[in-house]
Design a protein around this nucleic acid. Structure first.
Length: 614
RNA sequence: GGUCUAGUAGCUCAGCUGGAUAGAGCAACAGAUUUCUAAUCUGUAGGUCUCAGGUUCGAAUCCUGACUGGAUCACCA
């Protein structure tokens, strides 16, 4: 039973009885009543005015009066302007609470038998994870949890981009300059260790490039290739890639290393394996700190040749076409996209080819009904093209592809640019928020007496809640501005604020358990607005999950949870619970039990664990 | 230039499948604790919802156009 839907039908029945008119149910707008008015649900009268030729107030009073008399749902009503506010019978809310508070599955939907494969966090193995990855990881994880709560079966996967020129740069710098140093000997977290050599490569390359710019050869290149009136600095900025691929000695060595890797040269492969293991074990530590995992990792080194056979097949079927130079393309101009290359003229594959192949092998293994990619919105075009191609190839899951495109993370000082050293490192950030939680807790002193381990557990939960909530509360589609100072805030609309409301409920429940509280099933004669506010939100929760799942949008949950926590804080402040008289006490304890469950459940969907005290 | 996307309080964000007086948090100011933990609660102040048209009983929300910002448009990944 759904209150809003039932009311919708009852309004239709009332119109029929009062005016002998059939009115379509879906044209009756039923919404939660706004807080400043009395009532639970509100029906808008305006659409009826033209049809019934009466004032909204008259219609509202007529329908409200009819429902009060005839509906088993409606206790009372009021009409303000064109709005009919309906109050449900207290018994209905009491029944809802009675069922829900004892249901430890409240919020979880029945299984759908739908298999969803979700890909998130696709790092390169040449440097550690940063803030952008954190947004990706939190979104991917949370989405998977939300879909599970909505009843789907979710397979979480990651693609690790472990080959290519970038990792060769790290490898080369290590080989030339490390003198055998390792993460173990240096005591540096292993992914940072590899990242440092990537930076070192860039530094050495920059030095080399500067020498070139001042050499006679460099000056000659500038004079011959510059655009009109182009300054030397501007020219060489643009020329950097070309320099890397032509004159640069380091560039040449790195490219040779890539060729060696492709040939399978044993020493290169051995070094590549070692450095990738370092990076990946570092990633795993960060994933653990963030509380996320994957069912399967795909390594680009094992998948980058995939898809060629599918292109050949599609070529025969006429999905693709071949140019004179033997390169293979697809024409997507009818889909307003363009022509897109899928195989180079030398027969090698591109990124798109690989993605086509990977989607295919995933289907062979998992038979997923739906495939979701959590990737930044800079790749929107790529995924549009990929999805069109998969549709044309008639892949079975092609109708249920989704690119969860999230906006880039910017800093208050501007964009993050690895080259300019303005990237916020994931591990540093995690350390920082936990430290901030510790500072704050030390000042308060509430948990000072706890054993070290228990304290550490709580502080980690608080710090991570601050960081995660700050990121996940923003609508994924929008780019976000990240202010480190705000991310460690523990007051206001934050993760710790929500945790604290949970801790309050938890403390209360511990206390009544010690008193051996037993449910009395008595119903208060009147529900306070603070109680109603909680009930309406709690009642809504399963729908909120459906909505978040349908939109792939964790921020829906984040906003809901904050609102619930806020209402509980107010409830706590305004009304006695344990000290209330019997029917109220009983009711408010059950309310607290359900609030506690829903807070915990919804925060779990965001990947945020709750502390028992703080 | 083509395509996509965003613009709401000083700042960070909700609200966008059209409904009541556009909401939170932060920052500022003023208050509340003999009480189930004040990481809380209450109040004050802060708005041309970028602009101009249109549709509608009703527009922050839908449509059109402009302005501003972002992304993308490689035989890169």
């Amino acid at each position: 039973m759904d209150f809003a839907l039932t009311l919708q039908q009852e309004v239709v029945a009332a119109i029929k009885a009062l005016y002998q008119i059939d009115f379509e149910a879906n044209k009756v707008s039923v919404a939660n009543t706004r807080k400043e008015f009395v009532g639970d649900y509100t029906v808008v009268m305006f659409p009826l005015v033209a049809i019934l030729k009466q004032s909204p107030k008259q219609i509202g009073n007529a329908i409200g009066g009819y429902l009060k008399e005839n509906s088993s749902f409606v206790q009372d009503f009021n009409v303000i302007k064109g709005f009919l506010n309906l109050e449900l019978k207290t018994q209905l809310w009491a029944d809802f609470l009675e069922n829900a508070y004892a249901n430890d599955q409240y919020g979880n939907h029945p299984k759908t038998n739908k298999n969803v494969l979700l890909e998130y966090c696709s790092p390169n193995t040449n440097k550690p994870l940063h803030l952008g990855h954190i947004r990706n990881i939190l979104l991917g994880w949370s989405c998977s949890k939300i879909l599970e709560a909505a009843g789907d079966h979710v397979i979480r996967t990651q693609v690790i981009n472990d080959r290519g020129i970038a990792i060769c740069k790290s490898m080369l710098a290590w080989k030339k300059f490390a003198n055998g140093e390792t993460p173990q000997t240096s005591g540096i977290k292993s992914d940072h260790f590899v990242g440092n050599y990537y930076v070192l490569f860039e530094t050495k390359f920059k030095e080399e490039y500067e020498v070139f710019q001042n050499s006679s050869e460099g000056i000659k290149v500038y004079e011959t290739n510059k655009k009109a009136n182009q300054e030397s600095d501007a020219f060489f900025k643009d020329y950097k890639n070309t320099y890397f691929n032509t004159y640069s000695a380091l560039g040449k060595e790195a490219r040779e290393m890539l060729l060696d890797w492709e040939k399978g040269e044993p020493n290169t492969i051995a070094l590549w394996k070692t450095m990738n293991e370092w990076v990946i074990s570092g990633f795993n530590e960060t994933h653990k700190a963030l509380g996320v995992d994957f069912h399967e990792n795909y390594f680009e080194s094992e998948t980058y040749l995939l898809g060629k056979d599918l292109i050949e097949k599609g070529l025969k079927e006429g999905i693709f076409y071949q140019k004179e130079d033997t390169s293979v393309w697809i024409d997507l101009t009818e889909e307003k996209l363009d022509h897109k290359l899928v195989l180079r003229s030398d027969g090698t594959s591109v990124y798109m080819t690989q993605d086509i192949g990977m989607a295919h092998i995933r289907y062979e293994k998992y038979k997923m009904d739906s495939l979701i990619y959590v990737v930044a919105d800079e790749q929107n075009y790529h995924f549009q093209v990929l999805f069109e191609i998969l549709k044309k190839m008639k892949e079975p899951y092609a109708a249920h592809l989704y690119h969860l495109a999230y906006g880039m993370v910017e800093l208050t000082t501007g964009k993050m640019k690895s080259r300019e050293g303005t990237v916020v490192d994931a591990d540093d950030l995690i350390k920082e928020v936990i430290q901030e939680a510790e500072n704050e807790a030390a000042e308060r002193g509430d948990i000072n007496a706890l054993p070290v381990e228990a304290k550490k557990d709580i502080l980690t939960k608080i710090g991570m809640a601050a960081l995660k909530y700050h990121i996940i509360k923003v609508n994924p589609k929008k780019k976000m501005v990240f202010d480190p100072k705000e991310s460690v805030d523990l007051q206001g609309q934050t993760g710790p604020y929500i945790q604290y409301s949970y801790v309050r409920a938890n403390g209360l429940i511990n206390k009544i358990n010690q008193e051996n509280w037993q449910s009395e099933k008595l119903i208060p004669s009147v529900l306070e607005p603070q109680e109603k506010d909680l009930l309406i939100q709690l009642y809504d929760y399963p729908n909120i999950i459906k909505e978040a799942a349908a939109d792939y949008d964790p921020s829906v949950i984040a906003n809901f949870t904050y609102s619930l926590a806020k209402s509980y804080h107010k409830f706590w402040h305004d009304l006695p619970i344990i000290k209330a008289p019997t029917p109220e006490k009983d009711f408010r304890i059950k309310l607290s039990i359900l609030v506690k469950h829903v807070l915990q459940h919804s925060m779990d969907l965001l990947g945020i664990p709750m502390p028992n005290r703080m």
